[in-house]
Computed example of a mutant assay.
Amino acid sequence: MDRLKDKVAIVFGAGPNIGGTTAHFLAREGARVCVTDVREDAASGTAQFIRERGWEAVSMVGDARNDADVQRIVAATVEKYGRLDIVVNMAGRVHWADVLDMQLDDWQDSVASFATAGMLTTQHSARAMLACGSQGSIIHLLSTAAHFGEADGAAYCAAKAALLNFARSAAMDLAHHGIRVNTVTPCSMEHQLWTTMRDEMFDPDWKQPERRGFYSRQEYLDQLPLRRFPRAADLAMATVFLASDESACMTGADLPVDAGLRFKYPTWTPGKHDPVDIGDYARATRVTRYGEEQELLTELLGEPIERP
């Protein structure tokens, strides 16, 4: 559990799912972690969870899209711990709209949430790493949207794709300093069954939204060769690997954590050959917070789960 011993990390974007789990897994491998979020309760809740388990963590409030906030967070972390070795950026907001109906403000917010936040967190973190003599690791969380076009998702797809190629270019700029920049790409996550998709799973009167880019959980599950959704812990473990010296010769790389989705043949539907009913899947799923298993999903949200 000492793969990151004596290293200092910042995680931009907290909460009990991806960001909080990543911060938790970094800390349990020995890193001292600064957890940041635009919501004070999300940042402080994650830091408290980590400290309760005997590891070092502090929380700070800030917006990764804001230059002054990112500078302040990086400077405060270095002042407290004396160095900076790892930065994980997973901040951002999603806007869905057909390109004909897209609002300029939503487009600009998407670009700021992902591409601009990626640039700011990389730039200020890399400067701090150089100043303290650290050959650090910077990791950005992406989405399958960075690699594909999605109906109603032009703003999200464009912003994530921009972040992907920004990270690749930044990796080239920083390589001669020994600073690595890599990315992790998940697809739709298991925790969305009890967050953004809970009505679909548990409301017997739920109606499918009238949106061209919409797909049901069953339709998504049917596309996954490994027949399960990725969990926050899966992303956190990939991030720990990229943060550690085990990946010392990797930069500009993207790790897909997507149950095989990106690499399957487009017209092949795994669910037709190895069927898994989304209701059965949900009934067997345990809710996780910060990567630790809690109650069964049905215990949290109640029965029944009758429809795909």
Rank of each mutant, 00 (worst) to 15 (best):
E293G: 06
P304M: 00
V88P: 06
K264L: 01
A170Q: 08
F202N: 02
E79T: 12
E29D: 13
G252R: 08
S169Y: 14
A170V: 08
F214Q: 03
K80Y: 03
T185G: 00
V8H: 01
D277N: 15
M129K: 07
A236D: 04
A151L: 15
G19C: 04
C132G: 08
A75G: 07
V38F: 07
E200M: 01
G13N: 01
R212Y: 12
D245Y: 10
W96L: 15
S143K: 11
Y265P: 10
D105W: 14
R39G: 12
P186A: 02
C34T: 15
R289S: 12
G149R: 09
R262H: 09
A27H: 02
P204Q: 00
E219H: 11
G30F: 11
M189T: 04
L300G: 07
Q223N: 12
T21Y: 02
L242N: 00
G15M: 04
W268N: 08
T269C: 09
P16I: 06
T267M: 08
E210M: 05
A57Y: 03
G291A: 02
D173V: 10
G213K: 03
V257H: 02
T267G: 02
R51A: 06
R307G: 07
P225G: 03
E52V: 07
C157S: 13
R180M: 06
H140A: 03
R168C: 07
V58T: 14
